[in-house]
Amino acid sequence: MNKRLVLAILLGLPMLAQAQTPEEKGLQIAKDADAFDSGFVDFTADMVMTLKNKKGQTSSRQIRIRTLEVQGDGDKSLSIFDEPADVKGTAMLTYSHGLEPDDQWLYLPAIKRVKRISSRNKSGPFMGSEFAFEDLGSQEVEKYTYKWLRDEPCGEFECYLIERVPAYKFSGYKRQLVWMDKEAYRLMRVEYFDRKNEPLKTLVATDYQQYLDRYWRAGKMEMTNHQNGKSTTLDWNNYQFKTGLTDNDFKSQTLKRAR
């Protein structure tokens, strides 16, 4: 036997024994979660967004969401605003692209104008809420770098605890801690740290339901901002999968007739 080969195998053995690094394991979990949720083709859902300020005063928005799965790229999604009444009929179309900036169009019904808009404002608040645009966007694997920290119980489940760092530009976060259950990769809790690494927000997702015997979606998401005392709750209803949406339902031209 070649002496060099023997040496290589001997040197390599400890690496094999050690298996994955925490980074590799974190990435693997993210990939597994992505694979677990892929193949949904499309879905539609209704969302009620309730904003609550420090004094407990609330304000609400109603938005209908349509999403088309795109193989090999980020998903296409359409948001149609029903409330508040002054923005009724406004619609936003997003083609998400992993690390590249998303393509985004906004339809303004008052002047019937479709406007290409910049997707640069990742960290800005969505509709004045505690959700930033980047919190609601399509969560592609390549958008973060990952590090598995440990496994730990989370409520009734056993979770992976993963630290992820945004790899895309202009994020408002230094890092995020993500609790994801080991059985079905459901996102249970996310802690967001601002650019100065101070705790900023916590997202708790509950009321999960399974659709088509496979795809899990949260019925309720609550985002609490620890720095300003405000919170925003998303209540999701009427989830439907494989509804027959096509590429033509996600074109800037068709924004004008999105209902």
């Binding site: 910049s118 640069r120 404002n121 960290s123 800005g124 608040p125 202009f170 408002g172």
Partner: peptide, 10 residues
């Protein structure tokens, strides 16, 4: 030209 989140505000 847009300045996003001026003076650390929204």
């Amino acid at each position: 030209y847009t300045f996003y989140g001026i003076l650390e505000s929204a």
